[in-house]
Each structure stands twice: as C-alpha cells, then as structure tokens.
C-alpha cells in the first residue's frame, strides 16, 4: 500500500510537469506545491479546413511563456493556476516572388494570454488502486482576441469558459527500475460569446525509469466541438482560437528530474486530424520545481 501511495504521489508531480491542463486523477498532498515555468510554441503555414483537408495559409506563430502552479489545500483539494504571462502571436509578411515587394505586411502582438484557474478534488481515497478526480476550470479571457493591424491576431479567444473534467489514473510496477502509469479523462467545456462548447477526452501512458527520474509519456487528446455556437465566418479568429475547432492530437514528452525537487521537460505534439485549426506541431520546454 505504501508503495502504491508513493508511486501515485510521484505521478501527481510528474504528470503535472508534463501536462499543463490535465493533472490526472491525483491531487496534490496537503501543503505541497508544484510550479512549472514553460515555453510552448507552434508555427505553421497550413491549416485544417472545415472538411479536414490541409490548406495553405500565411505562416502563423504563437508562443506562450507560462507559469503553471498547483497547491494542495487538503489531501483532496488542489488549487491550480495556468498563467501565460507572456504570449506572442504573429504572422509573416506576404512578399511578391516577382519583385520582392511586401504584398501584405506581417504583424505581431504581445500580451498576457488566457488564464485558467482550476480546482481539483480527489474522489477516491489516498492509495486507491484507481485514482479518480474531478476538476472545475474557469478560463479567463485575459488575452487579446483581435490584435494587430487587421485584428486577425489572437493571444486568447476573448470568451469566459467553464469546464468540468474527470480523470482516472492508475500506477503499475513493471519490475526492475521501470514503472508505468495510465490516465484517462473526459471533460465538457462550456464557452460563451458565441463559441461552441467542446467535449474533450483523451488518455496517456507514462513509462518511468529509476523511480521516475526519467519519464517518457505518450498522450492522445481529442477535442470535439458541439457546434452549437456561431459559425466560424462570424468570428474573426484563426490559429488555435477559431470557433468549431476540432482535433485529434498525439503527443510525446520526456521528463528528467535533476534533483528530488527540480526537473526539466521537453514535449512535442501534432494533430493527426483536425477541423479549422492550424496544422503544425507544437513544442514545449520547461523546468519544474516541487515544494
């Protein structure tokens, strides 16, 4: 039982270190904190159309420098914040191949990004074989949803959203120095200002080595739009902020704990299919601290 708890405590740290908005079924223990400084970015010149085909577009880029922090108020209740304190969105110049003149000037905006505040509650007792937790998320529209000369750049979607999510996870000893965990989640995101609601679900598998000093994670995320909001033609948003966006993404992440309290991570994710969203991989690097 002790071992199971230890595994799950470790998982609680490590899962948070690689997934900004997930966290799995494991709340933080009372008085414990986890902080992660991350850089996330995605740059691409193609997007998925409404029929899932790939079309070209001007190169769009979005970058988030963020702090993710969580704190265990009790053994079951954890407060979480995701704060992109610097968010940058840009698009390239369109330049004539014939005479080199700029046809449509590029543009960039910098601001803070949309911020999430979450409360996670553990629905199962410590040491349960399967850890289940419910999370309520409030998405605060601190980002800029119509920046730039043509008001087509965003560091946020401009809407206040509320999401409820349930996670279930379990840890498994593989033998030797290897451990494994799995986690699955399902969530419903209620969005405002004409944006369609979203159903989100996914799963991940993490393989740990040497008591999770090294952790390799594979993650599948699916987002489905309920399409109950305005049509995309009525909302001037692009990249990752358009309406009725859908995607299935596959991600990989490697975490390394430098000390017991400090570690680094690097991640890669790509959409295997999508609708009305930029079709480029995203990358992330981060450093995390456990207190």
């Amino acid at each position: 039982m002790k071992d199971t708890f230890k595994i799950q405590l470790t998982l609680a740290f490590l899962i948070f270190s690689m997934s900004l908005l997930a966290g799995g079924g494991w709340p933080q223990p009372k008085g414990k904190s986890f902080i992660k400084l991350s850089q996330w970015w995605s740059v691409g010149d193609k997007h998925y159309t409404d029929t899932g085909e790939l079309d070209d577009n001007v190169t769009l880029g979005i970058f988030n420098s963020s702090i993710y922090a969580e704190h265990g108020f009790t053994d079951r209740l954890t407060g979480i914040i995701y704060f992109p304190f610097f968010s940058r969105s840009y698009n390239n110049n369109l330049v004539s191949m014939t005479n080199g003149e700029i046809l449509v000037p590029g543009d960039a905006i910098n601001s803070i990004g949309d911020t999430d505040i979450m409360l996670k509650y553990g629905l199962t007792k410590k040491g349960s074989k399967i850890a289940v937790a419910g999370t309520i998320l409030f998405g605060l529209p601190f980002g800029n949803d119509e920046g730039g000369i043509f008001k087509n750049l965003q560091t946020g979607d401009g809407e206040f959203n509320q999401m409820i999510q349930f996670d279930a996870g379990t840890g498994i000893r593989l033998g030797g120095k290897f451990d494994m965990y799995t986690n699955a989640y399902v969530g419903y995101n209620n969005r405002t200002k004409g944006f369609s609601d979203e159903v989100r679900f996914g799963a991940e598998v993490g393989i740990g080595f040497n008591n999770y000093k090294w952790l390799f994670i594979t993650r599948l995320n699916v987002l489905k739009s309920t399409k109950n909001g305005d049509l995309p033609s009525q909302i001037n948003s692009t990249s990752i902020f358009a309406n009725n966006t859908e995607y299935t993404s596959l991600g990989f992440e490697l975490n390394y704990s430098i000390t017991d309290n400090v570690g680094v991570s690097a991640g890669y994710a790509t959409a295997t299919s999508g609708r009305i969203i930029i079709a480029s991989p995203s990358y992330s690097v981060g450093i995390f601290i456990k207190l």
Binding site: Q39, W41, D45, G61, F63, Y90, N92, N93, S96, V285
Partner: peptide
C-alpha cells in the same frame, strides 16, 4: 529559443 523563432519572416507568393 523564443527569440530566434518568434520573428516575423517572409512568405513568398508567386504573383507573376
């Protein structure tokens, strides 16, 4: 990393 990849670049259009 952030500085090097977040600058506005050029996309060329065959507009002849």
């Amino acid at each position: 990393i952030f500085i090097f990849i977040s600058c506005i670049g050029d996309d060329f259009v065959d507009d002849a």
